[in-house]
C-alpha cells in the first residue's frame, strides 16, 4: 500500500496532443481522462486500455467539464455558448444533447452531487441552474455586472457560489433563486491603467469537502496585464464569515493559477502557469501561505484534476501534453 505523500509527487505518464490543452478532468471511475484543447474538440485518453478518442460537437474551445453524479455523462462547457452531454464510456461518444446555454462563452459547468442540478455561467453575466434530467433552466440568476468565470455548488446542496471578472463572488440560495450574500475576492482582479482594461476572475473555484472553505485560483497584484506580469494566487474564503482567510501563493511567482483541488487528507493542490512558459504544482496547508511542496512542470499548466484514488493528478499543459502524476513513492 502506497501512502499518500505530496512531497514524493512524480510524473507517471504523458499523452501528447498536437495543440495546446486548455483543461482536463479524470472521470469518476478513473478510467478516462478528458481534455479540452485549442481546437474545437474534446479528447479522451483511456488510462487502462490506452488509446485516444476525439469528441466532436463544439464550435469553439472547451474550457470547462464536469461529470454527472452517476458518472455516466461528461458535461462540457464551450466558448460557443453551448453545454454538451456526452455518454463518456461509449466507443465513440456523440453529444446526446447540446444546448445553447449562454449568449457568449460558457466558462464553467458544474453538476451537483445529488445529480439533480447543473450550474453554468458565461459571458452574458448570467448564472443558470438547470434541471439535470430535463435540461431545462430552473433559475436564471442575474446580478453579476461582469463576465462570470466560475461556479460551484456548496456541499450542503442549498447554495451555489459564482465569481466574476472583478472578483465579486455571489452566493445564491437554490431554494428561492435569490442572491443571499456577496463575498469579496477583489484581490483577484486588477485594472491596468495603461491598457485601460480589467484582468482577473477565478479560473477555477472549489469548495472544500466539508464546505467550510472556498478556494479560488487566479491572479493577484496585476502590474502589466498584457504582459502576464501579475502574481498567481489561490484565495481561500471562509464560508461562514464570508471573509478572505488567506492568499496562498509562492512569493512573487508570476503567472496565473488555473486549477485548485482539496485533498481528503487536508492539503490543497493547485496548479499555475508562469508567464515564462513553465508551470508548477503547488501543495499548500490551508493555514500557511507558502506551499509546503512544489513540483516544477515543463510547460504552462492550464488545468488540474485528481483521480478517485486520490493519489493521481492530471494536468493539461500548453505544450499539448496531458501529464499524470502520483503523490506516492515512485514504484
Amino acid at each position: 500500500m502506497n501512502s499518500i505523500d505530496p512531497k514524493r509527487v512524480h510524473q507517471t505518464a504523458e499523452f501528447k496532443h498536437e495543440r495546446p490543452l486548455t483543461t482536463c478532468r479524470i472521470d469518476p471511475s478513473g478510467k478516462y481522462v478528458f481534455a479540452g484543447a485549442e481546437d474545437l474538440n474534446i479528447y479522451r485518453w483511456d488510462l487502462a486500455q490506452g488509446g485516444k478518442t476525439t469528441l466532436t460537437g463544439h464550435e469553439s474551445w472547451v474550457r470547462s467539464m464536469d461529470f454527472s453524479a452517476d458518472g455516466q455523462w461528461l458535461l462540457s462547457g464551450g466558448w460557443d455558448g453551448r453545454v454538451g452531454w456526452w455518454p463518456l464510456g461509449e466507443a465513440q461518444p456523440k453529444p446526446a444533447r447540446m444546448i445553447e446555454a449562454h449568449a457568449g462563452w460558457v466558462r464553467s459547468v458544474r453538476a451537483r452531487s445529488d445529480g439533480k442540478l447543473i450550474a453554468t455561467c458565461g459571458n452574458d453575466n448570467l448564472v443558470k441552474v438547470w434541471d439535470a434530467e430535463q435540461t431545462k433552466p430552473i433559475w436564471q440568476l442575474a446580478g453579476h455586472q461582469r463576465h462570470v468565470y466560475s461556479v460551484d455548488f456548496h456541499p450542503g446542496g442549498r447554495f451555489l457560489a459564482s465569481s466574476d471578472l472583478i472578483g465579486v463572488v455571489k452566493v445564491w440560495d437554490l431554494e428561492s433563486g435569490k442572491e443571499t450574500r456577496t463575498l469579496d475576492a477583489s484581490v483577484m482582479t486588477g485594472y491596468d491603467k495603461k491598457f485601460a482594461a480589467d484582468m482577473g476572475g477565478a479560473r477555477d473555484m472549489r469548495f472544500s469537502p466539508d464546505g467550510k472553505l472556498l478556494a479560488c485560483a487566479g491572479i493577484t497584484d496585476v502590474r502589466n496585464a498584457f504582459g502576464a506580469v501579475q502574481g498567481a494566487l489561490v484565495l481561500l474564503l471562509d464560508w461562514e464569515s464570508g471573509k478572505a482567510l488567506r492568499q496562498l501563493k509562492d512569493g512573487d511567482y508570476q503567472g496565473v493559477g488555473w486549477g485548485v483541488r482539496f485533498h481528503p487528507d487536508g492539503f490543497i493542490i493547485a496548479t499555475a502557469a508562469h508567464s515564462n512558459g513553465s508551470g508548477v504544482l503547488w501543495f499548500f496547508r490551508p493555514d500557511v501561505e507558502k506551499p509546503f511542496h512544489t513540483l516544477g512542470l515543463k510547460a504552462s499548466s492550464r488545468g488540474l484534476d485528481t483521480a478517485p484514488d486520490q493519489q493521481t493528478l492530471a494536468t493539461a499543459q500548453a505544450d499539448g501534453h496531458l501529464r499524470l502524476y502520483r503523490m506516492t513513492a515512485p514504484s
Binding site: N123, D192, F195, A196, A197, D198, A225, F226, A228
Partner: peptide, 17 residues
C-alpha cells in the same frame, strides 16, 4: 481606444475591448 496589445490573455482582452 487603448488596450489591444494583448501578449497575454488575448481572447479575454479582445472580448472586453
Amino acid at each position: 481606444h487603448h488596450g489591444y496589445d494583448s501578449h497575454a490573455e488575448n481572447f479575454n482582452f479582445h472580448l472586453e475591448q
